[in-house]
Amino acid sequence: MATMKDMIAPFDLVQPTTIEDAVDILRDAGDEAWVLAGGLDTMDWLKDRIKRPRVVVDIGAIEELRGIREAEAGGLEIGAMTTLTEVANHARVRSEFSVLATAAEHVATPQIRNQGTLGGNVSQDTRCWYYRSGWPCYRAGGNVCYASAPLAMNREHCIMGRSRCVAVNPSDTAPALIALDARMVVQSPRRRMYEAEDFFIGPSVDIERMTVLEPGDLLTQIYVPDFWANSSFYFEKVRDRGSWDFQLVSVAAAFRMSGNTIEDARIAVNGVAPYPVRLDAVERLVRGETPTETVQNAAGDLAVQGARALRHNDYKIPMMRNLVRRAVRSVAA
């Protein structure tokens, strides 16, 4: 009898119904476990036979992880398993935190947004094709970055924040959550809360991870405080195709205005570094300023200071500069 060999590597599928059970299972399985949320990133890895976890923990049956609730301290608590469609369609998200709704709407296709989750979107791995193809690069535990080689195909890779690895973070919702000063709640045996910008880490911290999540950790909730509710928001994503594509560069910004003056701002860009970049220098620059063309240009120029292109992605520098300009211009009278 013929033996079929080319199958997804076998694993134990576990479907806990509580966060506590999930955390226990993840702790026991350690780095042999894989968390399955919407499954969109997961299935690529498993079907390509590149990730071979021993235990797949499907957290789809944990009701606590779903839905959007009013937080006691104000703001919203969004369960990590809330789908991107739910986030994009939620009345309060749309009315008060529209930058998040817009960002969620920009993820891939309706079908993918129906299945994909907010937690999965921020936790997904980079799309660097050398890495995704299973090449033994730094991020995969090897000792080379194929994407930064002189003749590498690196059009979509980073222009800043690189440290050996030059991959970029692919999440659309990540910059929006940073602009909203969201907090990520991570449960392992102990509960921790991270500011959104600290949730994402670069290769200089750990080259094999894109977030603070380590084996045994579970992202359970995203808390969006109401400080930035009803601010002036801006989100723009530039991609190769009109739909269903990862960003080349995206920007998310929140502005608190006092008349024509920017009282406060939070601006984040993604697709330019291995992590979403918060532009705190630009925020300081525009704070207290009227967003004139001079300020817009200065903001754009400051945003790309230190940017360094690879062989094929120098277009990203003006693209990032222009997106930041446009974000600031969006609140001009």
Partner: peptide
């Protein structure tokens, strides 16, 4: 020579995979 420093132009293919492994 495989990372970003002011001294060298980064070139991960300066030596072969096998040689790089021995170096590491």
């Amino acid at each position: 020579m495989r990372i970003d420093t002011p001294f060298f132009t980064r070139d991960p293919y300066l030596v072969s995979d096998e040689t790089a492994g021995i170096v590491f």
